[in-house]
Simulated assay, not measured.
Amino acid sequence: MASLNEAELVDQGCEPLELGFTVTVQTEETVGETIVPGTSERRATATASAVIEPLCSFVPPEPSPDPPSEPPTEPDPSATPSEDPEEEDPALISGLSCDGEVWDIDPEDPVLPRVEELFRVRLTGDDE
């Protein structure tokens, strides 16, 4: 991002915070001719901190109760297997909620949240 704004990282560049980063950058070009004496060869420097906030929570669904246990039965040798076995519905993964939107994910055709739906990045002040 610094190079897109004609700047470069200085010092140790990017310092990790608990849930974010602090970055110090300096402009690649000097300030140039100004009315303030002695500043034409100086470069601007800025420091900013940003935190990454999760927007999602996950609460696993309650497990379904176990069916009553029955003694195992021997397979019937005279039975023939069905040519069209019953297909079960694929299990849905549920319990993911992102910024108020509930996501039920079908493992057979997963549609997952985009990164901007999972996290928010915001600049912080010195008091945060």
Rank of each mutant, 00 (worst) to 15 (best):
N5K: 14
E6Y: 15
A7D: 05
E8D: 11
E8G: 09
E8S: 12
L9G: 03
D11W: 09
D11A: 11
Q12W: 12
G13Y: 01
G13L: 04
G13W: 02
G13P: 00
C14N: 14
P16T: 06
P16I: 00
P16S: 05
P16G: 06
L17Y: 06
L17A: 00
L17K: 07
L19E: 14
G20W: 02
G20R: 03
T22C: 07
T22D: 04
V23A: 01
V23M: 07
V23L: 08
T24K: 15
T24R: 15
T24Q: 13
T24P: 01
V25Q: 01
V25A: 03
V25L: 05
T27H: 11
T27F: 08
E28V: 08
E28F: 09
E29T: 06
T30W: 01
V31Y: 11
V31Q: 11
G32F: 05
G32N: 05
G32E: 04
G32D: 04
E33M: 10
E33C: 08
E33V: 09
T34P: 04
I35Q: 11
I35N: 12
V36K: 11
V36C: 10
V36N: 10
V36Y: 14
P37L: 06
P37D: 05
P37W: 05
G38L: 08
T39M: 12
T39F: 12
T39W: 12
S40H: 10
S40A: 10
S40E: 15
S40T: 03
E41T: 13
E41W: 09
E41R: 12
R42L: 14
R43G: 00
T45A: 06
A46Q: 13
A46N: 13
T47Y: 10
T47P: 02
A48V: 08
S49L: 00
S49N: 00
S49R: 05
S49T: 01
A50C: 07
A50K: 06
A50Y: 11
V51R: 04
E53V: 15
E53K: 15
E53T: 15
P54E: 13
P54M: 08
L55M: 05
L55K: 14
L55C: 03
S57I: 10
F58Y: 15
F58R: 13
F58V: 01
V59K: 15
P60R: 12
P60T: 00
P60V: 03
P60I: 06
P60K: 12
P61V: 04
P61H: 00
E62M: 09
E62C: 02
E62A: 05
E62Y: 05
E62D: 07
P63K: 09
P63N: 07
P63S: 03
P63M: 07
S64C: 08
S64E: 15
S64W: 11
S64Q: 14
S64P: 04
P65G: 04
P65C: 02
P65V: 00
P65H: 04
P65R: 10
D66S: 12
D66Q: 11
P67R: 02
P67L: 00
P67W: 03
P68M: 03
P68G: 06
P68I: 03
S69A: 14
S69R: 05
E70D: 14
P72H: 02
P72Y: 04
P72V: 06
E74A: 14
E74P: 00
